Simulated scan of single mutants.
Amino acid sequence: MSGSIFSFCLLAIGGRELGGDLPVGLMLFFRSLFSLAFISLVIFFIKEKSQITINRLPLHGFRNLVHFAGQYCWFLAMGLLPLAEVFALEFTVPLWTALIAALVLKEKITLRKSAAIVLGISGVLVIVQPGVAMFDTGALVALAAAVFYALAHTAVKSLSSTEKPVAILFYMSVLQLPVALCFALPQWQWPEGIQWLWLVLMGLAALSAHYCIARAMLSTEVTTVVTLDFLRLPLIALIAGLLYQEGVGFSLFVGAALMLAGNLINLAKPVAGKAQQAGKQQAAVSD
């Protein structure tokens, strides 16, 4: 998740640099195009073509459709709402993910997970301080992006049980490319100069971010992964303050502390559970 958070920060910087100069559909198209080129080279050199199967192609298709929809809604909401409110609504993803994972993957919503999610969202609200009049058209679009991302997270968790990360990344690039092209063609324009460099970096960052997420979800439950993702917001805020001179107030550190507390609660092993496990191991040795 550390690798994923770093990659998403780089992706956000690229989006910030290109925002206003290139249409959203065009950015998503070139991102998918460069991602496909990179992942194809990786597959060729590591000779892992056998990992690309069509056994779960329908789920790959569903995952990438909702993921693309989430990306597009998120960028669209940025033009309808203040950035702070978009981020606040985006970080409702763990709530939707926990509910969807409980229904679809039969994961349990424990007291620790509930506390971690509540603390994480509280930290986000402290940092961004969204206004009270949030539920207009822009807010609904941002909420739709959060729901789409939650569906994508849940699909990746299911896919990671049988599919290798390289296959998930390959299908992400292949299936999203034609969809992005349909959105890019009506507003087509060729990138210029340093815009090409940012598009290449965004393609690389997209691959590394989703690779790290796929690996993380292979190791633990999806709700743990998205809870750790809360740390992305204070890091992005700090980077924005350094690169773009955006103000960083005391609320950032208060919110980050709340999110960190939520992460520690979520990752900590119950003391009773350790004692019980140790007792079982001792009994097994005695037997």
Rank of each mutant, 00 (worst) to 15 (best):
A150D: 01
K113Y: 01
K106R: 15
A284S: 13
E221V: 09
E85W: 15
G262F: 05
F91K: 01
R31M: 04
W96I: 02
T223I: 02
A184K: 02
S35Y: 11
F8V: 13
S158G: 12
G15Q: 09
F29N: 12
L228K: 03
G247T: 13
C182H: 05
G3K: 04
P191M: 02
P178F: 01
A268Q: 09
T97A: 02
V271N: 01
G255D: 03
S286L: 12
K157N: 01
V132D: 14
F253W: 10
L207M: 11
F62H: 03
E48M: 04
G25P: 00
P130R: 15
G255S: 06
L177N: 13
L243A: 04
P58H: 12
V42D: 12
A205K: 06
A240W: 01
S161N: 09
Q276Y: 10
V254S: 10
F8R: 13
K164N: 04
F45T: 09
A139Q: 14
E90A: 15
L159N: 11
Y244S: 05
P178G: 06
V24P: 00
G70H: 08
D229M: 05
L22E: 00
F148W: 04
G131A: 10
I109S: 06
L18V: 02
Q281E: 13
L10T: 12
S4K: 13
G61Y: 12
G203L: 07
A139V: 11
L83W: 11
L243C: 03
A146H: 02
I109C: 07
L81D: 08
P191S: 02
S219K: 15
R215Q: 09
N64H: 13
A146V: 03
V156S: 08
N64K: 05
D136C: 05
H67W: 12
L252H: 14
S219C: 08
A37Q: 13
A84K: 15
L125Q: 15
R56V: 04
F29S: 09
V147A: 04
D21V: 13
A116G: 09
M202F: 03
W190H: 14
V42W: 15
L177V: 06
L140H: 14
G19W: 05
F75A: 05
M259R: 09
I117Y: 00
K106N: 06
A237F: 11
W74M: 02
L201P: 02
V86F: 05
V147F: 01
A145L: 02
L95W: 00
F44D: 05
L11C: 08
S286C: 11
I5D: 07
L57Y: 10
A12D: 14
L231E: 04
P186T: 14
R16M: 01
Q282S: 13
Q282H: 12
V222P: 00
V254M: 10
A283S: 14
V254I: 14
